[in-house]
């Protein structure tokens, strides 16, 4: 019983970080109808930036978020502007998907060139500090990371619900054509949306770097988990992706505690399979023609 509850706590804390990564990805899908296969690579890029800032300038990983997030926001806008906007024609969705895969490969290549393939992680002095509450271990880093994810998700929610940009994003998600007719600049919304998605990846990346060992190839693990989460939550639904991230965090943590850590990744795939069999549009997904 103790192990069970401990696993659930760990799962919820981890799930919060996944929620942050996945919300960015599902946001990009909602706006541009593009499944961003580079989201995992952007997270790893964020982790490496944090690593460099920490090891060379001694900037605390949590503080470095203030630097990495705006930086990757700009990178995201640049990627959208240079590589995704020029695509046109009938196969846009397919081409965009492959282009994001190419971006992921390019980031992986650039990172391997700069840092090599060995596993690293970001180890601030408090990395192994943890509290004991009612006999359950709560790691400081995981807890702060969880809080941070909630704050970032709150910021994202605020941007989407309370700003003009957010309103145009929501309009684009609901109906791109009408949004454009009403004067929403689709290119601008797409670019900013991709930037926001990349920014969430940066924030999550800083945390990811403290919680896990990573190398440039880590984005494959990440992206397969993220894809499961966004499909489970329903593509394009941010709320859905948060719920799905928590579910998956707990599920994989339970499997790794009760069975074996090597099968924890497998939980994701089994869940994905079940979702596709029983409810292909996910928990909160809208039924859109052509996507599913």
């Amino acid at each position: 019983m103790h192990a069970l509850i401990q696993a659930i706590i760990l799962g919820i804390l981890t799930g919060g970080v996944y929620a942050l990564m996945a919300s960015g990805q599902t946001l990009i899908f909602g706006i541009m109808k593009v499944v961003n296969l580079a989201q995992g690579a952007l997270v790893v890029l964020g982790a490496y930036l944090t690593y460099t800032l920490f090891t060379t300038l001694g900037i605390d990983p949590f503080v470095s978020i203030l630097i990495t997030t705006p930086l990757l926001f700009l990178v995201g806008i640049g990627l959208q502007w240079a590589l995704l906007r020029p695509l046109h024609g009938e196969d846009v969705a397919q081409l965009s998907l492959l282009v994001t895969f190419a971006i992921a490969l390019a980031i992986e290549g650039a990172l391997s060139f700069a840092y090599g393939a060995t596993l690293t992680n970001v180890q601030p002095t408090y990395a192994n500090y943890s509290w004991t509450v009612f006999g359950y271990q709560i790691s400081l880093v995981r807890f702060v990371a969880f809080l941070l994810s909630i704050v970032m998700l709150g910021v994202l929610y605020f941007i989407l619900q309370r700003t003009k940009f957010g309103r145009s994003v929501r309009a684009t998600v609901q109906n791109p054509m009408s949004a454009q007719l009403l004067g929403v600049n689709a290119n601008r919304v797409s670019a900013l949306g991709f930037g926001l998605g990349a920014a969430t990846a940066a924030a999550a990346g800083s945390v990811f770097g403290m919680l896990n060992s990573f190398n440039p190839g880590s984005h494959y693990d990440l992206i397969s988990r993220l894809l499961t989460i966004v499909v489970l939550g329903g593509l394009g639904s941010i709320g859905g992706s948060v719920v799905a991230a928590l579910i998956m965090g707990v599920a994989s943590s339970l499997v790794s505690a009760l069975a074996s850590p090597i099968w924890s990744d497998f939980t994701f795939f089994i869940v994905l399979l079940l979702v596709l069999l029983l409810r292909p549009r996910g928990l909160f997904g809208a039924k859109t023609r052509g996507a599913l």
């Binding site: 499944v35 494959y220 894809l227 593509l235 497998f266 292909p280 996507a291």
Partner: peptide, 17 residues
């Protein structure tokens, strides 16, 4: 059961499985 994008996701997941 899924189309285009989601099909690509599912198959990529199958790769990782």
């Amino acid at each position: 059961r899924t189309r285009a994008d989601v099909f690509a996701i599912v198959t990529i997941t199958f790769l990782f499985i």
